[in-house]
Nucleic acid binder design. Structure first.
Lengths: 188, 188, 188, 188
DNA sequence: TATGAATGAGCATTCATTCAT
DNA sequence: AATGAATGAATGCTCATTCAT
């Protein structure tokens, strides 16, 4: 009987390892050797889960984005306003986990100009996120277009806060990030 | 007497070539061979201008940031409000040149988590930019802290717009970027 | 299960190849490419056996010295005087194998002034050889110090013969080397 | 009027610099850059004095050997026995200068197996040295052959002492080297 | 004569990938 | 499924050499 392995779970494990290596050593420091070692495997084992490095990287980006999405789920018990606020807060680099997500996101954002596959993944994740935010906004507002425009404004707000937080992490504590978010949300 | 070469100019030429290669092929595609070829030289020539690759990359980031700074200069003839608006507009990825700057910026932002030298350069350029914007804002507002806070809000605004524009360039035309900027500036 | 390889044997094979290349092309002609080709491998394969070139070179020296040592073994059936004579004879560059050993030894002796690791290996092999000769001498002589001094004299004798043989190989045939050794041994 | 330069003197200066670099960094660390810098010049200047690197190295060996020869000169005022003793003493690595000579000699001895030009230079210097010693010996002894054989024995003696001194410099002080030489000379 | 810019080959090393086991 | 040996191409870097000045 062959050893039973949950292939999907293993792929996610490896993608998480890749994300950690990218955050630690940059995207060009993310060799297969390094990623495999980070996950506790040897290089040769990767071949069972990814056809090549590009596939691993694309899946790493996808997984990182999925993870952000999963953090948004289950806000059913909240009011729309609360859900919107929680969603935006959870996107900021206030924790080690979300900071890692942001570093990986930026690494791939830069890489996307050189890799169409990555660009597509990113574009779709962006549109999906915009729709999510837009739907939460629409709970309060009525017209469709206005909701989308407001969603874009709010995403710009958190992206802008996040980027500054990454450039000067010491100045942008969790508190300041949240304060800037609240202030921006009120501004409308 | 040896051939006379303007070393500083040559360094900038090479840094620009590096920026183009990074935008085209990602930061891990920016090999010395590729950069030298892009600049019309051979690998061995780089050694006269940069001790090693890391120095080339750091200088490339620095040059890219300096270029943004030089775009901000000479707003003397404008009113403070006009100068502020022009400054923020010029920071958006609305042209090929500024888009390239943004891609390079993001590539290095991701790399900075793995390279302390790059992180320092970026942090200082960010603070410098914040001061510039703050000074323009202060022309209108009075209290110092308020000006800085407003500057951070405006930088978040353009960073946020820029990031979305990079994720979905087709949706974020120059017009939409500028409209989003104007709308955000009014919001205060 | 991966392909099974006798790592130690492979290391010795590679070290022998390195010794041949050093003898043929000098120590600066001993590139990894050349050594790998001499051994029938490609450069990349070396990485499994040596972390870097310095490690390969140190091991090459060590192996060359070990080989000399192994030539000295198993003199059990001889009288001390015969064993001493056989030991000294086997150290002279009278065969292709021992000549190669001598060329490699000299290459590393010169290199040792620039590489402390090599210097240590050489010093210890020298002291070990001196002890071996000293022990054989002591079979005849009684006092410890006198034996050591005689060992040094005998080592000087064969080193001196060997060096001249390397400078003028045509003049120093095996016969002349052995005659000079015999003459020197009687001299005491 | 062109700058007047003593070409021969400049060549010797450069050869001495090369010898120092070889002793310090090994023969493969003796790049033209390094040698030129050691002599206080730039690489390009070497081309006026040596057609290529090989020529520089051959001349470096030649110069190192010539220097040994010049140390032997002017023993006119001594008795033959004193002259012989002084000659042999001056060949031992007892000073920084003669130690450097020995390291360079060994570096080139190893290299000679890969470079016929070097081998010729070395062989002739060896024969010349043997004749010198032989002539001094002949002052005491009568038959020609016996003198040559004794010269070889004495050269073997100092070569052997020198080699051991290079392998274990801490054990072989100047005193011990000279004592071993005296003891060996008496042995005959 | 001397400089140092530039070339292009070569170096040690790293790496993605393949594959026998 | 997993290992790790092996390949061969690429990388950053060094170097001998050439040459305009």
């Amino acid at each position: 009987m062959p050893k039973v392995v949950d292939v999907d779970q293993r792929r996610v494990e490896l993608a998480d390892a890749a994300a950690r290596v990218i955050a630690r050593s940059g995207i060009d420091g993310a060799s297969l050797r390094e990623v495999a070692a980070e996950a506790g495997w040897t290089t040769g084992a990767l071949v069972h889960y990814f056809a090549n490095k590009q596939e691993l990287l694309a899946f790493t980006l996808q997984t990182s984005l999925d993870r952000r999405r999963s953090r948004l789920a289950d806000r059913a018990s909240l009011t729309p306003a609360e859900a919107l606020s929680a969603t935006l807060r959870s996107a900021l680099p206030t924790t080690a986990e979300t900071t890692l997500h942001w570093i990986v996101t930026l690494a791939f954002a830069a890489q996307a100009s050189a890799d169409a596959d990555l660009a597509v993944i990113q574009r779709e994740a962006y549109l999906d996120f915009r729709d999510t935010v837009s739907a939460l906004v629409a709970g309060e507002h009525s017209p469709r277009d206005a909701a989308e425009q407001e969603a874009e404004r709010l995403i710009a707000l958190i992206d802008g806060i996040a980027l500054q937080a990454l450039f000067a992490p010491d100045l942008w504590t969790e508190q300041r990030q949240l304060a800037a978010l609240d202030s921006g949300m009120r501004a409308r």
